[in-house]
């Protein structure tokens, strides 16, 4: 049976993070999931507008959510930033009438947060099941010591994101186990890499990045995975490049034997 979900790739996955997208689609297909890209999506804006009077910056997310509501009601995201923004805007539409009313009036729609926003990882865990993934792995990544880099945006604020335990998350470690590799737990996996200042304040970004990478290395990680193009860029650009950082979907595709497809 094929499961079909609406899919929101986001701007970066169409350009600099093509691999994140490509391997996600290939893996989904191998797992019997059809990801139906929303027909006319726009960039989510990459950062969630925290002030309540910022309405315009929420609208592209609302459009995507509203479109998904009409197409089955589940929207799969992949990029951490997109997931963060869309999940929180969705909550605003459900819980903050002062925002929802304005957005609905402007877009001439009647949307109140009914779409379920599902991150690709959550989809793997809850809709597919890590056991099923394990059984479909043809090329287990035996012996590879992988550290999961969660960053900020998937986890926090946990009351809104509801993704995992914000201080001791486990979903990516479970994922690493499912593809046959060994997860390396390190404490900085949920601390910020400084992505937002990656370009304008390299000194600060470098400090943040080295804290993450040093800790991962000291704990025995030989490579890192992430779901965030900005984290990946920053960890590479402002790190010492000694630690390979890849998108988790690439390893998934590799394990499922669909990487070269």
């Amino acid at each position: 049976m094929v499961m079909t979900f609406s899919y929101y790739p986001g701007c970066t996955l169409k350009t600099k993070a093509k691999e994140l997208d490509k391997y996600a689609r290939a893996s989904a297909e191998a797992l019997g999931i059809e990801l139906k890209e929303l027909e006319a999506w726009q960039c989510c804006g990459a950062c969630y507008p925290q002030s309540k009077d910022e309405i315009a910056t929420r609208l592209s997310s609302v459009r995507a959510l509203n479109d998904a509501a009409r197409e089955g009601g589940v929207l799969v995201t992949l990029c951490s930033a997109c997931h963060h923004v869309i999940t929180r805007v969705n909550r605003d539409m459900a819980l903050k009438p002062e925002i929802a009313d304005k957005a609905n009036r402007y877009l001439e729609i009647d949307y109140h947060g009914t779409t379920e926003v599902l991150h690709y990882l959550t989809m793997l865990r809850d809709r597919v099941g890590f056991d099923v993934i394990k059984s479909k792995v043809v090329n287990p990544l035996k012996g590879r010591k992988i550290g999961a880099y969660y960053g900020c945006m998937l986890l926090r604020p946990s009351k809104e994101m509801g993704f995992d335990d914000p201080e001791n998350p486990t979903i990516m470690e479970d994922f690493i186990r499912a593809i046959g590799a060994t997860p390396v737990v390190y404490q900085m996996r949920n601390e910020c890499c400084g992505g937002y200042v990656a370009m304008k304040d390299k000194a600060q970004a470098k400090k943040n990045v080295s804290r993450v990478l040093d800790n991962a290395k000291n704990c025995g990680a030989e490579e890192l995975i992430t779901a965030c193009p900005l984290c990946l860029y920053n960890l590479n650009e402002n790190g010492d490049k000694a630690m390979p950082v890849t998108y988790f979907t690439e390893l998934l595709a590799e394990a499922l034997g669909v990487k070269e497809a």
């Binding site: 335990d165 914000p166 201080e167 001791n168 737990v185 404490q187």
Partner: peptide, 9 residues
Amino acid sequence: KFNEYSYAE
């Protein structure tokens, strides 16, 4: 709910 203190680990 206070895993920032690493009590469990």
